[in-house]
Structure formats: C-alpha cells, structure tokens
Design a protein around this nucleic acid. Structure first.
Lengths: 139, 139
DNA sequence: TTGAATGCAAAAAATTTGCATATTG
DNA sequence: CAATATGCAAATTTTTTGCATTCAA
C-alpha cells in the first residue's frame, strides 16, 4: 500500500480520486499555485475538480506532509510535492528568475538554530529572495 | 534631509503625508499586513487612508528598500521596516509562534550561495518554517 | 453504514484599476 | 505648472463556507 494511503488512513482520512489527481498534477508541474493545479487537473481527461476541493485537498495533503508550499512572489502560494522539495529556491527580485540550490547549502544554518533554539527548520520549501548574478552585475 | 525623502526624490517620487503615516505605523507595529497597516494608520488621529493608497504606498516604499515583506503564514504578506529587519523569523507550523534569530545565523549559508551562484541573498525578510522546541517535543 | 469528501453556488477577503481631483516639488 | 499621488468606487482575483449528496473504507 502506498505511503499516501498509509498517511491518510493513519488520520482517518480518505484517498479520493480528486486527491490522487491533485498529487499527480503536482508531480507533472513541479510547482504550481492552487489555480494552476486546478487547470492541470482539469487537463487530465476527467471532469474538472471544484476549486474548493483543490483548496481543501492541498490543505489536507500539506498537513500530512505530502505537499508543501512556498511563496515565490508576493501573490499566490506555490505548492509542490514534499518529496520533490530537495532544493531551496533562490528568487531574483530583479528579473524574477528562480534558481535552485541543494538543501545541504543551509545545513549549518539549520544546525545553528536547532542548537540555539531547539527549532527544527523545514527548509524543504524555503524561498530566499535576493538578486541573481546578472541583476547584481548591472545594478 | 531624511533618508526617506532622499530615496524618494532620487526616483522622482514624493513624500506625502500618507506615506509618512504608513512608515510611522509600521514603526509602531513592527510587522503588519496591509490591512493591519490601514487600521493602525487610521488610529493615528488623521483621516483614514484609502486601501488602494496603502497598497500602492507599501509597494512604492518596498521598491525603495524602505520596507520589506515576508510571509509568516499562508495568507497575507507581512510588512515591516527594512531597518527593523535585523532578524530571521522562525515560524512554528505547530503552534504558530514566531521566534526571531539574528541574520548572522545564516551568514555561512548566504556566503555559500554567493560563492556558488553569485546570488546575493537578502535574508532581511526571511521566514523559516518548522517546529519549535515545544511542538517538536510532544510530537 | 457512516463519516469524510465533493460539488456548487454564494459569501468573504484581498487586491487592483480607472479616473477626476488634490498635492508636491 | 506638471507630474505624481490620493480617494472612491467598481471590478477582479483568490479563498472560504454551508449544505445536500456522493463515496471510500
């Protein structure tokens, strides 16, 4: 039985076709806003899924640690599969480009706050803003 | 002449009473959503400021580097004075508590991505999610 | 069977936009 | 004066809610 099913059942939750499609859509997209997920889910052949179901589904899956979200820009939250979150996002405020670096880059930082505050950081969906090499150059 | 005026003028922008009040409100609040800023601005005696002015004002001030924003929760963005941003937020997904640690905690991380990608990270408004000591304990 | 989940449609929030008017520089 | 900002109100966009119905376990 899949991890997804196991995780859901452990909390008395159910694996519905819609939730499966949401997960599949995120797998295909990588990152997406709730709206984007809805659009992708609609493109998989079956009937469209109600917006409220998308929101509730993402929330449920996030609680289970199946998906996570981050804010790449000021507007909508961006969701992705937690398993796919093996990188940190570097968002350039100059040109909007989003680069990625391994989570290991921040291991010392994570270790420091764990030691000083007992805080266990989940940087699997961390977005760091700043300026990329290009934009920093012709600043 | 204040930095605020200088920064604004350098871009042909103007220092209006409303912008001054927005900055003052943020100074009093520390962190606040656009809505929160509007409420605080309204409490300072003068007439209320239109919501659109709050949004446009925050955007303008952010471009100038006077204020910055971060996302403490999934919903609204949280603004603060850039000068007040001398810390990183640790947001507990378990209980919602927001702790702060000095930006120096992440200096090696910042240095690493600067070296490897030439990316100059601005962690003055970084929010790291995870679980605080308390929530991690009785997990 | 039974409670969790969905669809739908309406309600709330949160932002944005157009434009005439007021203000700053 | 000229160009930038504001106020207002309407239009969008995004997210949430209530409830009858469906469906997974």
């Amino acid at each position: 039985m899949s991890d997804l099913v196991t995780a859901l059942r452990a909390r008395g939750m159910r694996l519905t076709a819609q939730r499966r499609r949401i997960v599949a859509a995120l797998g295909r997209l990588g990152h997406a806003t709730p709206d984007g997920v809805a659009a992708e889910v609609a493109r998989d052949g079956e009937a469209a899924v109600a917006a409220s179901t998308i929101y509730r589904g993402l929330e449920a899956l996030e609680e289970l640690g199946i998906v996570a979200h981050t804010h790449l820009d000021r507007r909508a939250p961006t969701y992705h599969l937690a398993g796919h979150a093996d990188h940190i996002h570097l968002v350039c405020v100059g040109c909007g480009v989003v680069d990625e670096v391994p989570v290991a880059s921040a291991s010392s930082f994570v270790g420091a706050i764990a030691a000083s505050r007992g805080f266990r950081a989940d940087i699997s969906h961390l977005a760091v803003h700043g300026r990329c090499a290009g934009c920093e150059g012709h600043s």
